[in-house]
């Protein structure tokens, strides 16, 4: 669906939108949601630095232990949580994830974030919004709205984690939710 050059342009636009909406990004902290929210957060920070010269603290936030669906499938491995020095108190925290789908990951991330302090505001940036929300959550910065069927999975690949940049839609048709979810791992 998206190739390397498309993703670079989208990240660049999102970086500009963040700078615009946060009046220069001075008080911003970017927290990527593992796995692929982390490289996306790093890329946004890099682009923001190139455009405006500000260095935005960047880290990661693993919401696994706050999920509401832990008992519905096999135990999930934990990912790294790394809150930048300076913390989140009074800052504008932008949660960064690759795909926004049901909204349950973001809800868990909001709970996890609350344990680390009280941000002045929390915003959400996603590369792909594929719809089908199950909670009243929306993103402040969307790279690409991608209408999908629930039977499909959206797979985001980054050079840092997967060797090359791409956004793919996989599954659909006879594959069904079950096989798609089980096989795709990080795809949503």
């Amino acid at each position: 669906m998206l190739a390397q050059a498309d993703i670079a342009r989208i990240v660049s636009r999102m970086a500009h939108q963040i700078l615009e909406k946060t009046s220069g990004g001075g008080n911003v902290v970017l927290l990527g949601i593992p796995t692929r929210g982390v490289p996306l957060a790093t890329r946004l920070a890099t682009r923001i630095h190139e455009v405006e010269g500000v260095t935005v603290p960047t880290g990661s936030l693993d919401p696994t232990m706050y999920r509401d669906d832990l008992r519905l499938r096999a135990v999930r491995p934990l990912r790294v949580t790394d809150i930048p020095d300076g913390g989140v108190d009074g800052r504008v925290v932008i949660l960064v994830d690759d795909v926004l789908y049901s909204g349950r990951t973001v809800r868990a991330a909001l709970d996890a974030l609350a344990e680390y302090g009280r941000p002045r505001a929390v915003q959400l940036a996603v590369l792909v919004d594929r719809g089908h929300r199950e909670l009243p959550i929306r993103a402040d910065y969307v790279g690409k709205n991608m209408p999908t069927s629930r039977r499909e999975s959206v797979a985001v690949r980054f050079g840092e984690t997967d060797g090359a940049d791409a956004v793919l839609i996989v599954g659909g048709g006879a594959a069904g939710d079950a096989a798609g979810e089980a096989a795709a791992g990080d795809a949503r």
Binding site: L70, R73, A74, V75, L78, S102, H132, D177, E181
Partner: peptide, 18 residues
Amino acid sequence: LYLLLGGADEPEEREVIR
């Protein structure tokens, strides 16, 4: 404790979640 209790009780009880 997390690895033993954090997931579904039995594999066959696991539902597929969206």
